[in-house]
Write a protein that binds this DNA or RNA. Structure first.
Lengths: 230, 230
DNA sequence: AGAGTTTGTTACGCTTTTGTGACAATAAGG
DNA sequence: CCTTATTGTCACAAAAGCGTAACAAACTCT
């Protein structure tokens, strides 16, 4: 995996250093700034693949700077992950509104951070995941965002697509509802486990309409399994 | 589904007791200490699967102790979840550097705690034992949650699966009904011992339907033994 | 703003699972 | 061979787990 360049904008020394360290360990190259002005200079020098941006910054705030970036065509495609100490929903919504690609609430584990960075890079097309997952006559194309069975295309909702994507990349293994929530919805989501059942039901219905009956299997007392077998 | 051993280090009595109680209910075995020194002794005695560590401790602080642990190869792989009171945000960040695996801010819900513990154990790979247990032509796959004999799949209930899992991982040894209840059902479950007999019967029936007669053997006066021999 | 989708939650009914008591069968020991 | 302790088997009721529909909230897209 080639190295990516990540711009860290964070005014607190301890946190900034920690971030750089974590990134380094995960084989990301990083450049760091303590405020928006400094960051802007680095940006002019070299366009990074991703920006880790603190919400609160001296001078121009992180959000404000991000908003400006997203308006300029040169920068608007750089993915931004916002960092904030407060886990308030309001901030999150505002952050995502201005076009941030993800949002991390401090404190976060290094592993989670890295995972999110990868996810964002993947989404923005910088990391090429496997574009097509093929299982039997099922094909899920992440680039085209299409799910086909044979040559027929299935109409699935975003959640169904993600669920299907997870299943197809983790076939034959049983997952509990909790695990599915973690993996498909995200770790810090607060959703009833029974909701999974409903989504499974919807997925099954779509699959049934195309003649596939037993792809999603119930393992009573444990969870669900996606498998071509049996 | 063997129980995990969790070391709780917390100086406030009420919280520590609450933790132990919650863990117990979730079928985790726990040992508790009130300070780092005491915890170290317990650690020397037996390596736990996870440590729940209060940030603030009398004497050596939780962070300091954690840092030391992470430097010693014997201990460095034990996952640590730090517990902190609200309003120590900054400190928590610093805790990341020492390699804690997660954080919990007091007060937290038992549900959340258990969820995080599971997540950490899952990440660190401890929750996944050996995926496949193979004994002769019997295969039990915990990931796929399948039990096969030759290439035929056996339809077993959750309890039967757990029982079979225990038997296959503890073949050739005799277990009393009490032991089986403890190991397969859980320590704090109160069930009649004769119930075991019924489950054994059900298991035998399924095995018989697939031509295996004497896998589960009665040792009169003691209990049952699972064995391929005889 | 409004129509149509998507998504999460809840409630209800059905099926499977599970624990238990009753009784039959079996083993042990004099 | 008879008595007693132990185990095997069955049937049943309670509980748990799951599928499904219906509803409401949130989100999209024009």
């Amino acid at each position: 995996m080639s190295s990516f360049n990540i711009l860290v904008v964070e005014d607190e020394d301890a946190i900034r250093e920690m971030l750089v360290m974590v990134l380094d360990q995960a084989n990301f190259a990083s450049i760091a700034a303590t405020d928006a002005e400094e960051a802007q200079k680095l940006l002019d020098d070299k366009i990074p693949d991703l920006i880790l941006l603190d919400w609160m910054l001296p001078g121009i705030s992180g959000v404000e700077w991000a908003r400006r970036l997203k308006k300029e065509s040169v920068y608007k495609d750089i993915p931004i992950i916002l960092l904030t100490a407060r886990g308030e929903e309001e901030d999150k919504i505002r952050g995502l509104e201005i076009g941030a690609d993800d949002y991390m609430t401090k404190p976060f584990s290094p592993k989670e951070l890295i995972a999110r960075i990868r996810a964002v890079l993947r989404r923005s097309g910088k990391i090429q995941g496997q574009a097509q997952i093929i299982l039997g006559d099922l094909t899920l194309d992440t680039e085209q965002h299409r799910l086909t069975i044979g040559n027929k295309q299935l109409e699935v909702s975003p959640t169904e697509f993600r669920l299907m994507h997870f299943f197809m990349t983790h076939a034959d293994k049983v997952y509990t509802r909790t695990q599915l929530l973690d993996q498909v919805w995200g770790r810090n989501v607060y959703i009833e486990e029974r909701t999974i059942d409903v989504h499974i039901r919807r997925l099954r219905k779509i699959l049934e309409e195309h003649g596939r009956e037993d792809l999603v299997q119930t393992v009573r007392g444990f969870g669900y399994r996606f498998s071509l077998a049996e």
